[in-house]
Amino acid sequence: MLDDTPRKLLRILYHFSSHYKRMPTLSELGRLSGRSNIKIREGMQTLAEQNYIEWNRKMPVEKAVIIEDWERPDPSAKQQGEGQIHQQTRTTGNTDYWLYY
């Protein structure tokens, strides 16, 4: 599970690159995230260590390549709906809508 800054940076990187077809610069990441340059570089390093992006610390941030564009689910969290009883509902189709409304 990612901390706040790396998660925010990953979302910004993904949306920025899909919208503008390029990676944001360090100053653009600072403006969009509200984080300092040091925090951005630490967050980028965290993303690189956890294999969300490919990025070398010595390279500019716009040289990063996104490997995984969304945060992985937390394996320790319970599965949604686990332990709940599900009722079978009868599906009538959409004819009721057209006949009775």
Rank of each mutant, 00 (worst) to 15 (best):
I66A: 02
D69F: 08
M1G: 15
K21Q: 14
R22T: 07
Q79W: 02
M59R: 15
M59V: 05
Q88A: 05
N37V: 11
S76N: 13
S18T: 13
S17V: 03
Q88T: 12
F16E: 03
P73C: 04
Q50K: 14
Y100E: 08
K8W: 05
K8H: 13
L9Q: 02
K39S: 14
E28H: 03
R35S: 04
F16G: 04
Q45P: 01
Y97W: 13
H19N: 07
D96S: 12
R90I: 14
Y100N: 15
R35H: 09
R7H: 13
I12H: 00
Y97P: 04
T46I: 09
V61W: 01
L10M: 02
V61P: 02
Y101A: 08
R7Y: 13
K21N: 15
Q80I: 12
W70I: 08
S36R: 11
E71S: 12
R41Y: 00
Q80T: 12
R41E: 00
I85K: 14
R7D: 13
Q50D: 15
I53H: 00
L32M: 15
I38V: 15
S18G: 00
M44C: 06
E71V: 14
A64Q: 00
G93V: 02
W98M: 11
Q50W: 09
Q79I: 05
R22Q: 06
Y100V: 07
A64P: 09
W55C: 10
H19S: 12
K21F: 10
Y100I: 11
L99Y: 11
Q45S: 12
S18R: 15
W55Y: 13
M59G: 02
R35G: 00
T46H: 05
E82W: 07
Y14L: 11
M1N: 12
R11G: 03
E62T: 02
E54R: 13
I40Q: 02
R90E: 13
R7T: 05
E49Q: 15
R41Q: 09
Y20D: 10
Q79F: 08
E28P: 05
K58C: 00
Q79H: 03
I53D: 02
I66R: 01
E54A: 11
T89P: 00
E68T: 10
G81W: 01
E54Y: 04
K78C: 05
Q88Y: 04
T25H: 06
T46E: 07
M59S: 15
I67E: 00
N94I: 14
E71Q: 14
T46C: 12
E54M: 11
R57Q: 10
Q80H: 14
V65N: 06
H19V: 03
Q87G: 06
L10V: 03
E71A: 14
G81N: 08
D96H: 12
M44H: 03
P73T: 07
D4I: 13
D4K: 15
L2N: 04
R35M: 01
Q45V: 08
I38A: 12
K78W: 03
P6H: 06
Q80C: 10
G30F: 05
L47H: 05
R72S: 03
D69G: 15
E68I: 14
H86I: 13
I66L: 01
L99Q: 11
V61R: 04
L2Q: 04
A77H: 10
G83L: 09
N94M: 12
L2G: 02
R7W: 08
T5H: 05
G34V: 09
G34Q: 08
L10I: 04
Y14C: 09
S33N: 12
P60Y: 07
N56K: 09
